[in-house]
Amino acid sequence: MKQMVLAGARLLGVWLIVLAVLALGVEAVARVAFPYVPPGVWDYRGSRPPAYRSASFFSQDFIEESRSHQNWINPPNTRIIYPGDYSGRWFNVKNGARLTVGSPASADRRILLIGSSTIYNAEVPDEFTIASQLQKLINRYRGEQVQVVNLGASGVNVAQQLERLKTLSIGPQDIVLFYDGTGDAMQGVFYANFDGWIVGENRKQLNNVIARHRPAIEGLARHSRFFNWLYAKSTNYLPEHLKHPDQIRSLAVDSREKLLRGLLETDAYVRSQGATFMHVLQPDLFTRPLRDFELSLVQNHFLTMDGIEPALRIAHAEFASLTGVLKSQGIDAFDATALFDDVTEPIYLDFAHTNDVGNRLIAKFLFDALGKSRSLSEN
């Protein structure tokens, strides 16, 4: 009996060695055959990608606070999204608004800067958000006291922005500035769900098993090239409607019309409050040709999901006439989609979110647009 037990133990040992050798062999082949794909947004940003190379604020502590501070609130029976309060080193939120550095304690006029995560700017510290850099320009070049209020919220479209706006107090001296376009294109064209919201759609896409065990799976994907490849493959998908160009184009047309109706409704509401409305159509990675150093952003579906590029490029073509139509209706409207055409340095951290340099250029565009519209000189 003892000899049988020893023989069984030896056989088990041999099989374990064989399996270990096979596993090491598979891993060795995977490391040769497959490039490493950062298995998430935070892994990519934590690697200090090109858009962070010159960032004075970059550190792993900053990346961790950027990730962990976000707490998005969705009040019951609404589609409103806003950030929960937070007090930290790089991120501060109070009463649903992110801190605007340099904002005067009191002012007769406010600029309510409303948009999606591309206005909230979780990619940078408070002082480098679009809102803070716009405030800096106003403080430097304007003689009046004006507060810029950062009302960015993750994944919202224009309908949600208007719904939230209606819960806010608006004064007759205020300027409501919507900065958007990409969120509506994503919701309407990529997700083909005009009534949903982007964060909710993202949550639906991942398999429940993967969602429940994501931390452990991502840990394996960081250390094993084979699991890295398997995780990337198993979480990549192309929505069925994006396989058909005619459907993409039809959805883009519908998205443009829904966006236009939402903006016209917003203007009417803002006017009814005695305030001023202004719209800016935003740029993203696909409003111009890709640079070579941006290819890694579209090759990693954790940063740019498969199908986003055609969805956005076709949507942008349809949205091109939007600014002119709004102007013909007497609305102050500006098109910023060509803003980064001549920018040669890395500014994008994924298909939509920009670094401090990109935010500074956007803030300058908004400041100039406010001057052209004479909004800051009225009243």
Results as ranks from 00 to 15, higher is better:
residue 37 V to D: 01
residue 18 V to L: 05
residue 6 L to P: 00
residue 12 L to A: 09
residue 46 G to W: 02
residue 4 M to K: 15
residue 16 L to A: 08
residue 31 R to K: 14
residue 57 F to P: 05
residue 65 E to M: 11
residue 61 D to V: 09
residue 42 W to A: 10
residue 37 V to T: 15
residue 27 E to H: 11
residue 17 I to S: 04
residue 51 A to K: 08
residue 61 D to G: 07
residue 61 D to K: 14
residue 13 G to C: 00
residue 37 V to S: 10
residue 36 Y to K: 07
residue 29 V to F: 13
residue 55 A to P: 03
residue 11 L to I: 04
residue 34 F to D: 06
residue 30 A to D: 07
residue 53 R to S: 14
residue 40 G to F: 03
residue 4 M to E: 10
residue 62 F to A: 11
residue 10 R to S: 06
residue 31 R to H: 10
residue 25 G to M: 01
residue 59 S to F: 08
residue 61 D to P: 02
residue 33 A to R: 15
residue 47 S to V: 04
residue 12 L to R: 04
residue 61 D to T: 13
residue 9 A to W: 02
residue 5 V to I: 15
residue 66 S to A: 14
residue 63 I to P: 05
residue 70 Q to N: 04
residue 25 G to W: 01
residue 13 G to T: 00
residue 45 R to F: 14
residue 41 V to M: 14
residue 51 A to V: 08
residue 37 V to L: 07
residue 26 V to H: 03
residue 46 G to N: 04
residue 35 P to Y: 06
residue 43 D to Q: 12
residue 3 Q to N: 11
residue 60 Q to F: 04
residue 55 A to V: 03
residue 62 F to R: 14
residue 11 L to G: 00
residue 29 V to K: 10
residue 54 S to I: 06
residue 42 W to V: 01
residue 58 F to M: 01
residue 56 S to G: 11
residue 21 V to Q: 00
residue 25 G to I: 02
residue 69 H to A: 12
residue 70 Q to M: 12
residue 50 P to L: 05
residue 39 P to Q: 03
residue 3 Q to E: 11
residue 31 R to I: 04
residue 57 F to N: 07
residue 20 A to G: 15
residue 6 L to N: 05
residue 22 L to I: 15
residue 28 A to K: 13
residue 16 L to F: 05
residue 66 S to I: 04
residue 58 F to H: 02
residue 47 S to C: 08
residue 20 A to R: 02
residue 11 L to C: 01
residue 9 A to L: 15
residue 62 F to P: 12
residue 65 E to S: 11
residue 41 V to Q: 12
residue 67 R to K: 15
residue 68 S to V: 11
residue 30 A to H: 09
residue 64 E to D: 13
residue 34 F to G: 06
residue 37 V to C: 10
residue 50 P to K: 08
residue 23 A to P: 02
residue 38 P to Y: 06
residue 3 Q to G: 00
residue 23 A to I: 07
residue 38 P to T: 09
residue 15 W to F: 09
residue 64 E to T: 15
residue 53 R to G: 01
residue 51 A to I: 10
residue 14 V to G: 00
residue 7 A to Y: 01
residue 35 P to F: 01
residue 62 F to H: 13
residue 60 Q to I: 07
residue 39 P to Y: 02
residue 34 F to C: 09
residue 27 E to Q: 11
residue 66 S to E: 14
residue 65 E to W: 11
residue 16 L to N: 05
